Simulated scan of single mutants.
Amino acid sequence: MSATARPSEDDVPDQPASRFVDVAWNGRQDHIEYVYVGPEGRGLPLLVFLHEGLGSVTMWKDFPERLCQAAGCRGLVFSRWGYGESTPRALHERWPVDFMHHQALGFLPAFLAALGIDTAADPPWLYGHSDGGSIALIYAANYPERVAGLVVAAPHIFVEDMTVRSIEQARDGYVTTSLRSKLARYHRDPDSAFWGWNDVWLDPAFRRWNIEGLLPLVRCPTLAVQGLDDEYGTMAQIDGIARAAARCDTLKLEDCGHSPHRDQPARLCAAVADFIARHPHPLPDTLTQIRA
């Protein structure tokens, strides 16, 4: 969700060329940008990256590649509808208050199916940042057999006053500073990405958004990560996940704001790689035998 990215002009490393897939969902069809990163090989777990509210494939920079190499995972990175090079949000189209439920329950299953990923036979891991973390939690609560595990960094389970204040500041910055031109480096239509996110989070009805009731349904191994200097949320977010979810560890990072993958990438990669290693991923053939 963060609007705090302040990239320099030369800090975007080389990344694989984007691919595109058409995804039919919720009565619409979107052209979705994606890339595969990391090592290849049958039997390696798949780690799907769900970006923040202003993220995209390129906004991640080289973090997915670094993490997948450290964890021995295949990685799938994509830009949700409205972001990056994916189909932009239509002018004047406003997202509903439950947009993250739409993304988790409608779009994400359709996207994975469009790529031929059989989540029933070979459940992936999900790495979600901010809004992406919330989407990952909603998905895991509703499709517990279709996810191997979660890593959620700076996720939201309810709306805090400090979050709204920071988003109001982001709105002011988008209008009065160079934030729009910086975001244009990561989105074909920066207005699509920014106002889609900003408008819904500042909708008064969104103050009642809350997914705490879903958390007891999250049964997979979960690592909840947050920076102690997060400007968009307090530790109540990941502490709430740890209390409610069945198998949750927490990681609280010093000298770290809302984007742990940017502020503490080495520590984060090491912790996530260790967490995934402690929860081994069975081969697809083994899963089939277990379920038979």
Rank of each mutant, 00 (worst) to 15 (best):
G149P: 04
E160P: 12
G132T: 04
R180D: 01
E160K: 13
G240R: 01
E212N: 12
Y186P: 01
F206D: 07
C220G: 12
A184M: 05
P155C: 10
H156I: 13
E160W: 13
L137D: 01
L150H: 05
A141I: 05
D230G: 09
M235T: 15
V175A: 09
R180M: 08
N198M: 15
T177V: 10
A193C: 06
I238Y: 08
A193W: 00
P204V: 03
A140N: 03
A154R: 03
A184P: 02
L215Y: 12
Q169V: 12
R219T: 14
I138F: 06
P204D: 05
W195T: 00
F194D: 00
N142E: 14
G173K: 09
I135Q: 07
L150D: 00
S166I: 04
V152H: 04
R247Q: 15
V147M: 05
H187G: 01
M235Q: 15
S178L: 08
Y127E: 10
D161R: 14
R219D: 14
P144S: 07
D229M: 04
G213D: 15
I157V: 15
L179F: 06
L251K: 03
R207C: 15
P221M: 08
R207D: 13
Y143W: 12
D189C: 09
P216I: 07
V147I: 13
T163P: 12
D172P: 08
R208G: 08
G213R: 13
P190M: 01
D189E: 14
